[in-house]
Write a protein that binds this DNA or RNA. Sequence first.
DNA 1: AATGAATGAGAATTCATTCAT
DNA 2: AATGAATGAATTCTCATTCAT
Lengths: 219, 219, 219, 219
Amino acid sequence: MLLSDDSDPSETEETLRHIPKQERGRQRVNKILDAASQVFAEVGYESATTILIAERAQTSVGSLYQFFKNKEQIVRALVDRYVAQASVMFDAVPIEAFTTMTIEEMTDHFVDPLREFVRNNRDFHVIFASSLAFGYLGEAIRVMDEGLIMRTDAVFALRRPDLSPRERRKYALVSMTIVKALMGLAHMSQEYTLDEVFDEMKALSNRYLEPIMGAALPK
Amino acid sequence: MLLSDDSDPSETEETLRHIPKQERGRQRVNKILDAASQVFAEVGYESATTILIAERAQTSVGSLYQFFKNKEQIVRALVDRYVAQASVMFDAVPIEAFTTMTIEEMTDHFVDPLREFVRNNRDFHVIFASSLAFGYLGEAIRVMDEGLIMRTDAVFALRRPDLSPRERRKYALVSMTIVKALMGLAHMSQEYTLDEVFDEMKALSNRYLEPIMGAALPK
Amino acid sequence: MLLSDDSDPSETEETLRHIPKQERGRQRVNKILDAASQVFAEVGYESATTILIAERAQTSVGSLYQFFKNKEQIVRALVDRYVAQASVMFDAVPIEAFTTMTIEEMTDHFVDPLREFVRNNRDFHVIFASSLAFGYLGEAIRVMDEGLIMRTDAVFALRRPDLSPRERRKYALVSMTIVKALMGLAHMSQEYTLDEVFDEMKALSNRYLEPIMGAALPK
Amino acid sequence: MLLSDDSDPSETEETLRHIPKQERGRQRVNKILDAASQVFAEVGYESATTILIAERAQTSVGSLYQFFKNKEQIVRALVDRYVAQASVMFDAVPIEAFTTMTIEEMTDHFVDPLREFVRNNRDFHVIFASSLAFGYLGEAIRVMDEGLIMRTDAVFALRRPDLSPRERRKYALVSMTIVKALMGLAHMSQEYTLDEVFDEMKALSNRYLEPIMGAALPK
DNA sequence: AATGAATGAGAATTCATTCAT
DNA sequence: AATGAATGAATTCTCATTCAT
């Protein structure tokens, strides 16, 4: 599991006031998060008003506050939900499988699900991008980041146990950084298609990692 | 000149209410921008209040509004000032000089001044990073971006006139994207020094560009 | 109906943000308008602050803004309410009834209800008086004025169909002007009672109109 | 003298900080008052800013405040200046002369100079009209009003010494009220010319006063 | 005296959050 | 539980007035 052991990260006491017992409540929470995602993407976090989110979710502010302690918890829960979704994707392939792959295979296995995620979650990117600007928003994102980096680092450790942990982690960090950056580019670019950018992401990754991780362990 | 012919872009009627005639006024404007830069870096654009900025600049809101029509103009002017600074750096080496360099030399010429800029302008990064989240904030940034991309594209055109403009521009775009991303990493990282990250930026650039731009034109 | 067909002009989307569904809301709106009326009368429109009005109405600014988009809409709604009240009064007697009256009867039928209105709406006068000074405030007043003038003109037309429309309207205009002026005098005067001034208003009207409208149509 | 014994009412310590000794200062004061008159007429008293007035007068705020203690004193001085001007006009004919005139002659002698004043001082009207809305602005206007009423009352006293002072004053008050009201109408009306309205003012006055003041004293 | 930059109290308006219904 | 009216702190911006130059 990429990020946590909690089977449903969107429903912890961290972000939710109480776990909705009824199916109806669960649906309502999701509807609010859907609305919030749209509204945040459209007007940004600060300009999004709770009333607007509630209306978009076809509820009332009162109901919204029944589930979320405050506006901040809404973003948190939203990020949590996105992260949970992403986790499922990345966890599909066990770490060990990466040990004997070629660099190209490795890259494919990582980049392809990411491309799907980006394709399916258009408005996540705005939230993701603004994570730097908002301290607390960034927290959940940082957790996700760290999860990805650790996972990447673990893969690298299997392939290059000879490297110092510090150096290895640096490569993981740089790898994830360029992935995120090109992900943003894929999202924003009007000139190049998502696929073109993701293909370039692969080329970039391959060239960067080849000299470092190219030699897979002999079976 | 990277972006414009105006030798002091922070003092156009675009962002400033009136060009301060007195030296005192010029200093005050700069002091306000310094304060704004800090405050934006600390609490983000939306949470920064004009009163807080004024206090930090040791003035009154009234004075702040004497120079800036509204809060938005402050960020704009701030970005303009940063862009103007950066322009000077990048314009030090004429484009033609890049034609016959090796990839490594080229990278060095681009990355080294950037490293200095980042070193000297710690809080620019937050503003830079949040440009995505705020439409209008992004404008000046986009102008800067576009300037850098075009410049890079021009260099690439000199080295690889055989490539299609579309493909060439894609490489320029990706190059700049990774530079910006690692610049962010350099800024944020607690684990690695600025120099370590910039060195890795060079390695990354070199490996990415070698197969594409490696063959410099024969002299 | 003097001014419009809307039975409650104070509750149109023109001035109110939303029509209060609850009885409570309706009461609150009226309470705010009562407060505004007092405050405007005491300190004038420009000096009246929304917080002061809200306090006087025993609410919060927030509530005030729930109903009114801004300060201007408050005056507008207030004027609308006054106009609606006045309309009811003047519409009591159908125009045709004026055709065969003597001048004295006619004047009585117009001036008496007006006297009642002034008696019951002491602070309207200040708003009414300042309508000239404030462009937009004047709009609703002008609508009311025009309604009264047209009504008067219509009465005159029935009695003196031989006059040119332009001349007739001039008489209507002058008639209404002196009525308004003496209404103001009645309101402001410390020396003469309301009744004294209204009696003089009748004398003045009668003398002015006798030579022009004196000859009522034969039955 | 209609209003006061002060030979230059615009230059008392009431409104002016100090009497400008130099001709230059006197000119500057007048220029400021001219500017103020325009600006008040254009945007109203409250919306007129001191800086705008200063600019219009081609001076600086600093200079403006050299002459006027505050914004209020500017209107006061302005009204004083208008009143002084008007005084000269009305004082042209000595009161006693009215004793033996016919009503028509009397009206002509009063209305004709007034018409000239209105013709020559277009923007006074806005200030005049808003006097009700602003307590303190009204003060100077009230002084002027009172002067006119007393003068009219004095004329009436000469013609009808048999009337009770209270009744007589009522007639004076009503006379002045209708004159002011039609003056306003003359100013505002888009439909009728200034002359048309002033002619109607005469007719109205004549009809009103004939039964009360018609019988001039035998010589 | 003249200038216009500096000051900061004060005003309008918004919106997260609470709470009565 | 659901609703949406009520609250008021907080924010942006203006402008009368002062004061250094």
